[in-house]
Every structure is written in C-alpha cells, then in structure tokens.
Design a protein around this nucleic acid. Sequence first.
DNA 1: TTTTACCTCACTAATTTCAGTTAGAAAAAA
DNA 2: TTTTTTCTAACTGAAATTAGTGAGGTAAAA
Lengths: 220, 220
Amino acid sequence: MENKIKIHLADDHQVLIDGMLAVLKTNSNFEVVGFSLNGENLVERVAKNGTDILVMDINMPEKDGIQVLREFNEKGFTCKVIVLSSYDDAKLIKEVVKLGASGYLTKQCAGENIIDAIRTVADGEQYFSSTIKDKIFNIFTNNSQNQAMNTEEIISSITARELEILNLISQEKSGKDISEMLDISVNTVETHRKNLMKKLNVKSSVGLVIFAAKHNLIEN
Amino acid sequence: MENKIKIHLADDHQVLIDGMLAVLKTNSNFEVVGFSLNGENLVERVAKNGTDILVMDINMPEKDGIQVLREFNEKGFTCKVIVLSSYDDAKLIKEVVKLGASGYLTKQCAGENIIDAIRTVADGEQYFSSTIKDKIFNIFTNNSQNQAMNTEEIISSITARELEILNLISQEKSGKDISEMLDISVNTVETHRKNLMKKLNVKSSVGLVIFAAKHNLIEN
DNA sequence: TTTTACCTCACTAATTTCAGTTAGAAAAAA
DNA sequence: TTTTTTCTAACTGAAATTAGTGAGGTAAAA
C-alpha cells in the first residue's frame, strides 16, 4: 500500500474546514495533517509536518494566500498548493498561476472536484476547474492576438478607489460632489474619471455607467 | 329565461377573435352578435345590431379603440365597452377610463376573466383586472397626496422622439452626434435632453441612462 | 534597491452639458 | 374652432466634463 497524501487546509471559515474534513475523510488515500484559520506561520507549519498538498483560501486574516505563495517561492519550499477561492478574478488567477500554484478552484465547485484536484496535483499535474481554464484561455488568446485587453482584465484592473468613484458617478454625483464626499480635490476626481474612461474604453461618464451596470460593478 | 347578453368583438387578430368565440360559446347566456377586425364603422355596426357589450382591442387599423370610444361619447351611444389591450400603460388606462369604458383587461388574462368581466359589466358594474386596479390605485394615490408623478405616468409621458433621443444618449452619443444622426439642431437635442431630465426628475445624462436602464426603456 | 502601482493634485484649453426662457409650426384633441 | 401636445429652434450664461500633460508621495513588489 502506498503512502497517504498528506493534506493541510487553510481557510478562515471554520465551517468550510469542517466540511472539507468530512469530504476528505471519505477517501482513505488522504490524510489531513493540519489546518489553519489564517495565514500566520502557515509556511512553517506546512514545512514542519511534511505536508504534500496545501489547500488554501486567498482571503485570510494576518497573511493572505498571495503572500503565502510568495513566501513559498522565497524560501524554496516545494509543497504543492491548490488555491480554493471565492473569487475568479482574472488578475487573481494570473497572479496565483504566476506564483506557481498547482491548482485553482472556486468555492462554487463540488467536494468531488476538490478530491479530483488533490488526486491530480498529487500525481504531479495541474488542476484548474473548467471556468478557470476558460478565463486563462481568454486572457491568453485575447492578450496575444489582440492588442486590446480582455474585458476580464479590464475589470480587474480597476482599482478600489476607481471603483468607489465609478459608483458615485453611477449615482449621478458630479465631480464636485464626489470630491466633497471623499474629501479630495476635484482635480483628483477628474483624473480618476479620466483614467477610468481610458481603461474601460468609453467616451463619457455615460459610457462608464453603462459599463458598470453591464458588468455588475455597481450596487443598486 | 332571461335575454342573452349580446356581445360584439373587435380585434385585428383573427385568432384572438376565434379563440374568444370558442370561449364565449361555453356560456349559454352569451351571444356573439358580430365581430370586427378593425375600427371602421364599428360604432354604426354596434348600434345597429343592438349590442349590449363591446369587447374591443385598442390597437386596430383604420380607427383605434380610443377613437371609437370618443365617437361613442360624441354620438351618445350607451353600449358598454370592455377594453382588451396588450398594453397596461398608465396613460392609456387613464384615457380609457376617462372615456367611460366599463372594463379593462390585458391580454395576459385568462378566458375565465373575460367571462367574469362580461358578466360583471352586464350587471352594471365595472371590471378591471387586479394589475390594472393596482395601476389605477397608484396613479390615484401618488397623484393626490404627492405632488410628484407616479413612475408609471412618468414613463408613459415620454414621447416617441424623446425615447429615441434617450436611447441615443444611452449609447454614449453626444448632443452633436445625435443632432447629426437625426438631422436636427443641437439646440433641439438639448431641449429634448432637458425636458427628459425634468420629466424623469434626474440631474444629468447619467441619471437619464440609469432611469432608462432600470425601466428597460433601452434596447441593448 | 529599484521599480511599479496607486493615489494625489495642478494647470490649460476645448467642448459639452445644464438651466431657464421663449417661441413658431404642425397635428391632434376637446 | 380653440386648445393642447409635440417637435422644432434659438439665446444666454453658468457649470461640468473631457483631454493632455506633468508631477509628488507612499507602499508594496521585484
């Protein structure tokens, strides 16, 4: 009989950890050797208990998944990582892949998929869910053949501040209104507006609002 | 045994007439004494064959339902009219009620409802489907206690030309763009824009677009 | 350490939009 | 026939947006 696959789980949601434990217990080839509710000391713990595969969320307190991956690279650890995130943001996927993760699943996936993923990654291959594969494919194709950016990437290139301002614009606020609400200069607001228009490739604030509405970037 | 209720049907869709005939045949108290595929001579025909109740569509070739109702009023005919329309536009309902129709149903209603309506109206009462009642209620309440107009009414107060311009604005067109596309003066376009903003009670073109999107006033 | 990303702000200049008012013409309704 | 609705248009002046450029500061990443 071969050795069991040693798994470490990292997610700030206890219920999810518990659920995963239950799911993974059904497979006698898996052994969960530890779990973490945040990113602190995660790298050390994983290294210490000889983990084969780390199944990790991105959003975690103290230290997020991206930082953990980076640390893995810096310290030259070879533990394989499967990212299990709520988000399927193009920018995030790109980053995660670049940092050498072996797999990426969204939390919409079934427990079945996680088992598949672990098995696949344990065999030395990579595992990405089909929706993620599509995104990667889109990023790749739209990036190389077109000079234009992919909509996915456009959206994920919007910064937090820009999104904030995009929202206010979508609420009929003028530049001046916004500058007062955020306590910044009108010039700054207009710079953001300008940058947004360039990014989203639209001609006016109306274009911004249409784009925002179409891609559910605005609450309301 | 009492007299049968004499009914005349008017609708430009033959299938609908046929369907109604089949439905009304199931009730031995009803007698369809005639039907029309357009509004021409409708008033005369109804008067001639002693119709008790006219079930009429609004959209008809030659002469529409509104004109027919008006004619009834002018000539002092007392035939009761049930309007059966595809639309539940507030303006239309208001108009129809003002012109003295005894009932209003949308074509989404069941055959059952039409039978109910005919029976009710024959008894001298009025019949409006619940959705229509709601609309009337909204118009009434929002009109009297608030000075502001009801959204229903606001929407139906948008003219065809305004809607056209609203659409173009929602496509990122500038005033100049629109003036060239419609071959009218920029001033005119801006007047329309201004009137729209006043009507829809918004502060800017962005507001117009949001309103339009929210109420499905724009195709795309 | 150097680079990159992001937020910040300013200044100019052109263009567009917004607000209020007035008014003519045509068509439809009262 | 008179009134109302709708579309058209012009004018003024204020306010806002758009476009381009340059640049300082901070925090994080390479």
